[in-house]
Nucleic acid binder design. Structure first.
Lengths: 246, 246
DNA sequence: AGCTCATGTGAACGATCTTTACATGAGCTG
DNA sequence: CAGCTCATGTAAAGATCGTTCACATGAGCT
């Protein structure tokens, strides 16, 4: 029973050396397994090979550890969304959909982060740093929506970018929360979450008058202020965003 | 300290008489206050004026109490959605939007139920009764989508009703989860959640080719299989679902 | 070598979840 | 009405957890 301790002592001495990081990693694993609710401070300590009191040298309490994870999650989230957006290349609509997929991919691949960020019930606005990180991530979607709104077909009223961003966020979060992720809590689906969200966003964009397939509504009289949209390559099957009607 | 017990004893004798119901109510209140994660079995017992072990006569464990609440929540949810749908009166689109608002209203007015149903991390598919209740509630949306899909403008490919229903559900859940409810965890918004969702659904429906405002695309060549749609009354401002463009 | 302070330990407290053995009394049976 | 039975509640106890406190250790500086 004590060989582990001895071994670790031999490795790293009395002091752990990087306990804070080890705790964060341990917590991530535990949250991924059992959800933010099921994760216990004591477990994280045990997994890091230290006593139950040790974590208090690095985090005021359990909530602060959770907040740290959420914060880190928002930062990685922002990064992934930014990469996906790729400044709107090769064309705005394509990049926009890529952001949607990146959203789902993050929820699927980093369930622990996503859980801590959106489902742990921690008060976001109580922690200014956390709130700021959350807003930075949202701003990626917002900036993308801004660019998209500027592309609104002439003659159509220009949709407020903020609203578009909130709509897209709610769609992505709704799909991720209800259907994505491996949790037992998630519902079964007749299609993949990615397909579901992609169709949803495409229909929504079409509702705003954006050309999403073969741009049937495009009145062809607008010099695009950004790199010209490729008419193919948006990944939309020709019969509409949901494939062949039967 | 013991007068409460004595009083209750006087009222109801040794046996509580309706402990199961009292526990459910107590739990509902606690969840509304502190969220499903913060709610404790012991608190519910204390609030009902019984010992900490008493609840185990009525629920196998804390999770079963939570499941019961979720189940009851799904039943009330189904009822509210059914009422809102009102069998598609006075017209399908109007009724459909009313369902969306009912969704948000439920999330706002019954935070405890909503929390237990969607945010408590309960394994829905582990409990057949719970899963069935959840599906019955979803089926209201599904049935509404079915009727809506049947109204698809001629010439347009008919969208699969199931997909539409999933889209609407994800929108409503996304908005509710991110922005509705008084929780400190919720984000601030430049508009009301209801307005946000209504605009989102309207844009989506327009993307499917449905007439959502003054039906400019309606080709007028379809005998509606349901009561004829009133051309006004859908609550849509003339400039588009998001009000006046600036 | 010696000092100091960050870091970890062990013990302890109160709260919670859950089980177990026991008590009570409501309602049925005769 | 007496007595039985069983659902329902209690008290006590064990296990785990969050948290705090006094204390120990050793890494790095002087």
């Amino acid at each position: 029973m004590s060989w582990r301790k001895e071994q670790r002592r031999a490795e790293r001495g009395y002091h752990h050396g990087n306990l804070k990081e080890a705790l964060l990693q341990a917590a991530l694993g535990l949250i991924a397994e059992k959800g933010a609710a099921g994760f216990t401070f004591a477990d994280a300590a045990r997994m890091a090979g230290v006593s139950a009191a040790a974590p208090y040298r690095h985090f005021r309490d359990r909530d602060e550890l959770l907040s740290s994870i959420a914060q880190r999650g928002f930062e990685q989230f922002e990064q992934r969304l930014t990469e996906a957006w790729d400044d709107g290349r090769p064309d705005t609509v394509t990049a926009f959909e890529r952001v949607g997929r990146a959203y789902l991919a993050f929820a699927r691949e980093e369930p622990a982060f996503y859980n801590a960020m959106f489902e742990s019930g921690l008060p976001v606005d109580a922690n200014p740093a956390l709130q700021a990180a959350s807003e930075r991530a949202f701003n990626v979607i917002r900036a993308a929506a801004e660019r998209l709104a500027a592309l609104a077909p002439p003659g159509t009223p220009r949709p407020p970018a903020m609203m578009m961003a909130l709509h897209i966020w709610s769609m992505a979060h709704g799909v991720a929360s209800l259907f994505s992720r491996g949790d037992a809590a998630r519902r079964k689906l007749p299609m993949s979450p990615d397909e579901l969200l992609e169709a949803e966003v495409l229909i929504y964009l079409r509702g705003l008058g954006f050309p999403t397939d073969r741009r049937p509504q495009a009145k062809s009289a607008e010099p695009p202020p950004v790199p010209p949209e490729a008419s193919s390559g948006s990944g939309v099957p020709p019969g509409g965003p949901w494939g062949k009607p039967k």
